[in-house]
Design a protein around this nucleic acid. Structure first.
Lengths: 158, 158
DNA sequence: GGCTGCCTACTCGGATACACATTGTCCGAGTATCGTGGG
DNA sequence: CCCACGATACTCGGACAATGTGTATCCGAGTAGGCAGCC
């Protein structure tokens, strides 16, 4: 069980985008976070496909959020990058071997899968309770109330 | 985010072991579940290293649980197979780029990591609430109260 | 008949190949801006 | 001075390699039981 590093990048990028007044190009986001330009672009494409961000082409193009930051949850970002399918995949091994589960018992998922999926529901519910706006507020608390003013100034220049 | 297939195998094996009166060899467990003998052995080794099962060598050897089934949680098995480290790995990208987080703000994990780890705590808490004994009871409900009697008979023969 | 010793067969454990997913990179298609020329 | 047009530079998007982890396998070390021989 290992999450892609792109998840971390994508969430941080969404926080920055939530405070940016104009579309931000992928290379600028990569420079800001000190990560690979081309690889970050790949993850931004995934966010675009999931409908979380909207891309603008052309000279002053870039990425921008499609919804207010308080309507985008961390779960949305994680599912966009990691894919929506659950991490646990039941292969129905109870139907193998000398004692295969019979038809009627297989109408419901086996107990192992139910326990695993219930845990994933709890995981997702926790992530669903945190929005990008919440994270931006946390950054303000940690780094000072004017941190995003400085960021906006840097995005406008250079 | 993708769990190893060995997690499913390991949990099912623990359920069987919880009802077995004697140590069960790895090849027998593999045959019962219809999976690869050698690969299942690898995961049983991980359970052994984690202290969940005890291996007995020799002619009538095999694997047996080290604790009562109601004292082994699904979380124990998942951590034994997948490793104890959390799925989300914070690379501290907030310390990169033109606006690196300064010393005192870094004493606490960044908000992104806190949200991700809180979700993992919820995930683990859910798995901690289900024991191998619970799963065995579920199998009895789904497949009949005498299912493990048949299994014990099969384990003794052939 | 009982005991001792050896042999055998079975077990686990770690070391060894293969496949796929993640990571990382590159180049091409498309578009809005900027500058220039004309009216 | 205003407008239309074209060139340009910048953007995103998908197609293409390298690395790491999961998957699958094999063989060697060790042990307990079973059998034969001996007392």
């Amino acid at each position: 069980m290992k999450l892609s590093a792109g998840v971390e990048w994508a969430v941080h990028c969404c926080v920055v985008l939530s405070e940016a007044p104009a579309p931000v190009p992928a290379p600028r986001l990569a420079q800001y976070h000190g990560v690979s330009r081309t690889y970050l672009a790949k993850h931004l494409q995934q966010l675009s496909r999931a409908g979380l961000v909207r891309s603008t082409e052309g000279r002053v193009g870039g990425y921008a959020l499609t919804r207010p930051a308080d309507e985008i949850t961390v779960l949305d970002v994680v599912l966009a990058v990691e894919g929506p399918e659950p991490a646990f995949r039941c292969t129905e091994i109870r139907q193998n071997g000398p004692f295969p589960a019979t038809g009627e018992a297989c109408l419901r998922p086996c107990g192992v899968a139910r326990a695993m999926w219930a845990a994933e529901d709890a995981y997702r519910a926790s992530l669903r309770g945190v929005t990008i706006a919440d994270l931006a507020g946390g950054v303000r608390q940690d780094a000072g109330a004017d941190v995003f003013d400085r960021v906006r100034g840097w995005l406008a220049t250079s």
